[in-house]
Simulated assay, not measured.
Amino acid sequence: MTSDDRGASSISTDEGPRSSRSGGAPGKPKRKQLPLWQETILLLGVALVLAIVIKTFFVQAFYIPSESMEPGLILNDRILIQKVSYWGDDEPERGDVVVFKDPGGWLSPIDAAGPTNPIAQAMAKIGLYPTGGHLVKRVIGVAGDTIQCCDEQGRLLVNGQPLEEDAYIKRMGAKCNGPMPTNGACDEDWKTGPIPEGHIFVMGDNRSRSADSSQHMCPTDVTECVPGDEFVPVDLVVGKVFVLLWPADRFRWDTRPSTFEDVPDPSS
């Protein structure tokens, strides 16, 4: 083999490297970028889907519609509820502050209507604005529990165990923690339970200003009342309050009061 032959063999594949230097890999068209308006619509669509998914399965915003949960939650406070705690077979526990749908007749037509502004209605559907037709109360008893008002110190008893509630309730001058809503007085003791399976008994923290389970009990002197309206079906519970979001200066995480840890299981 001559030197000319070696030179020829060394440059026989020169076309390949030359073509790659002149314009990149062949057969791969340059990726086309979406116009700005299309990217904006796409991002808005993704954000909308995420908002709906989050509202449906994880977190939803509500507001406090009355003074019934004072002093902890006051009128127009913005709260967030989380739904994960009640997935599967898990149900509300004593002491939880929960949001639930109106069991029927607990709210006035105005309170049940929800937002009337079209923008607010649209935002409510995706969880960015509070909806109407819901109540916020504290779970006092769960299935099987018996609740009684009151002991000599004015404390509620759950399965015979008195609750120490001074840290979070508002008595409004009442001498007990479970005044009859009809007159706001403690001149009549009451007892309810056992709570049926799949139901809870709820009360507001502002005991004299709350249309809660105690208000829907049958008075002792009424014979035509049907017992049971005081219990809220667990299926109507939307979620548990876990944060007071707004106003910002009152932001806090909501936790279950320790007094409920001492309540014994209901006797069989």
Rank of each mutant, 00 (worst) to 15 (best):
V222G: 03
E15V: 14
D151P: 11
A120C: 04
E39M: 09
T131G: 10
I147L: 09
Q33M: 08
K137M: 12
G27D: 14
I41T: 08
S68H: 08
G114S: 04
V238H: 11
F251L: 15
Q121I: 10
G27S: 09
A61F: 11
R78A: 10
V222K: 13
C149R: 07
K170S: 15
V238P: 00
T220F: 15
C149I: 05
S208Y: 00
F231C: 02
T146H: 00
G133V: 06
P92G: 11
T56P: 03
R252F: 00
R209M: 13
S66N: 00
V53G: 08
D235S: 15
A8W: 09
R171A: 12
R256K: 14
Y86C: 03
A124F: 08
T259F: 11
F251H: 06
K191I: 11
A248V: 15
L244A: 04
Y63Q: 10
P194N: 10
C149G: 06
I64N: 03
D77M: 05
R207M: 08
D102V: 07
C150Q: 13
V136D: 07
E15N: 07
A8Q: 07
P92A: 12
V226G: 04
I11D: 06
R94I: 08
Y129I: 01
E261T: 14
N159T: 02
P247I: 05
S12A: 15
D111W: 08
D235G: 07
E197T: 15
G105Q: 05
P162N: 09
F58P: 02
T255I: 01
R31V: 11
D235L: 06
Q60E: 15
P109N: 01
D77H: 12
K83H: 07
I81D: 04
L75Q: 12
G7D: 11
D229V: 00
C149P: 03
S66D: 09
S3L: 11
P26R: 07
Q161P: 03
Y168C: 02
A143K: 04
G184L: 05
L42V: 13
F231G: 00
I81T: 14
A124Y: 06
C149W: 04
C150W: 11
G198P: 00
D151C: 13
D166G: 09
M172S: 15
E261D: 15
P92M: 11
D229K: 14
A185Q: 14
